[in-house]
Design a protein around this nucleic acid. Structure first.
Lengths: 230, 230
DNA sequence: CCGCTCTTTTGAACATGTTCAAGTCAGATG
DNA sequence: CATCTGACTTGAACATGTTCAAAAGAGCGG
């Protein structure tokens, strides 16, 4: 993988192969954006990039792998776009709502193409599956965002719940994504409405956990969630 | 589609075409079971059924349509298999647990092949999507099972929650399915464990809704669920 | 029985993701 | 420089879902 020459220069980023790899990826992403995933053929990608089909497969094991690269890009953009919110907003509700809304904003250009992405991601054997080992880094990064949402906020919670909450909020995001993928309303208005209603509700639910009679159930829920983690 | 002869006999079920249609379907289902969905080619199905490839496409628009027929079959089997439980069991927890466990039992032979099914179902454009219009009959039938789980049980609930609960339980089942699809443990032990823990928890949560402070949040949740229905 | 129309059936052709044996090239080694 | 090695590249071949124009069959009116 990495190129180490005896002239002393380690330069995996600009080595011939890496250039080709990036050329193929960027071409693929452009075509995906322009014509959608389904209509973009591997031949078209190779053609447009000026390489052979086989060469594309040398760097990316399948068309899905190119999509995964696309997905990773989205994740990165979300992570960046979320920074201002985490830096300025201090109350839990707007922090969480902001993070979720930002996801919609970042993903908006890809809504048409999200169906295909989602379809692939749903296959448990796909590396894109949000539960797969390959996507662990992306998932961890996403969970980390929610950890920061909580830690930087005014939320007061029992320690064990607080530890588990980032992953629960990640699940909430998965739910929003599921809804968004199916959302055909203009400007995905309904997805935004869902966030607007769901976030305050989550907030209220979390405050409820302080009621003694509720605490026990909460612990059981946390325990259940823990038990289903792989 | 339907054959109406002037001799007065309406016989769509045994008309030539229907026979072919069923031959193709049963052959496809057998091959799916024997070798999995992915490894079963349309050519193999046509071959085995003794017809041409084009003929299979004359009756089923795509390979996915054959899978949908498969899925409908599963649903039917579940509906039947659940009857004894609904007839004998009266307590809410064993009723619900029984229905969910029965789903696992019925689906067990198809676990390997469930990934593909799930993948297709996840595509919002697919008729197999659990949220699609085409699958509404199957979904309604499934929700109906959960309505009977509640109605025939000893559960005491506020009317509005009770009205919404069948759909919530259907969502719970979707969650179990999601987990099951990814479950690689032997005999899907972990999925069974999930049911064993989740069902009593659901029961406790429902009883909690009687606490005054919880009632309000419950109503909000019901409202939210209602608002996201299409 | 003949032709007409509609359904059914055929199989070759097509599109596209994927594989692979063989070729090319760049740098290292002697 | 000649050779070697491993990374890189090629394009034809393959597998399989899907389409389609044409053929075959079936019932019907004459």
């Amino acid at each position: 993988m990495e190129v180490i020459t005896l002239t002393g220069v380690t330069d995996s980023a600009t080595a011939k192969g890496e250039q080709t790899r990036e050329l193929i990826l960027s071409t693929a992403l452009r075509l995906f954006r322009e014509q959608g995933y389904g209509k973009t053929t591997m031949r078209a990608i190779a053609n447009e990039a000026g390489v052979s089909v086989g060469n594309a497969y040398y760097y990316y094991g399948s068309k899905d792998h190119l999509m995964q690269a696309y997905y990773d890009l989205l994740q990165d953009q979300h992570r960046e776009a979320v920074e201002p919110i985490l830096a300025t907003e201090k109350a839990f509700v707007p922090r969480l709502a902001g993070v979720l809304r930002t996801w919609l904003d970042v993903s908006a250009p890809y809504h048409e193409f999200a169906g295909t992405l989602f379809k692939t991601a749903a296959d448990p054997r796909s590396p894109l599956s949000p539960f797969s080992e390959e996507s662990r880094p992306a998932r961890d990064a996403s969970v980390e965002i929610f950890r920061r949402v909580i830690d930087g906020s005014d939320l007061k919670l029992a320690a064990d719940l607080k530890a588990e909450l980032p992953e629960l909020l990640w699940l909430l995001q998965m739910g929003v994504v599921l809804f968004w993928v199916h959302d055909q309303s203009e400007d995905v208005r309904r997805s935004r409405a869902l966030i607007d209603r769901a976030v305050p509700l989550v907030d209220r639910l979390l405050r409820l956990t302080r009621i003694p009679g509720v605490r026990g159930v909460t612990n059981d829920i946390v325990g259940l969630i823990n038990s289903i983690k792989p």
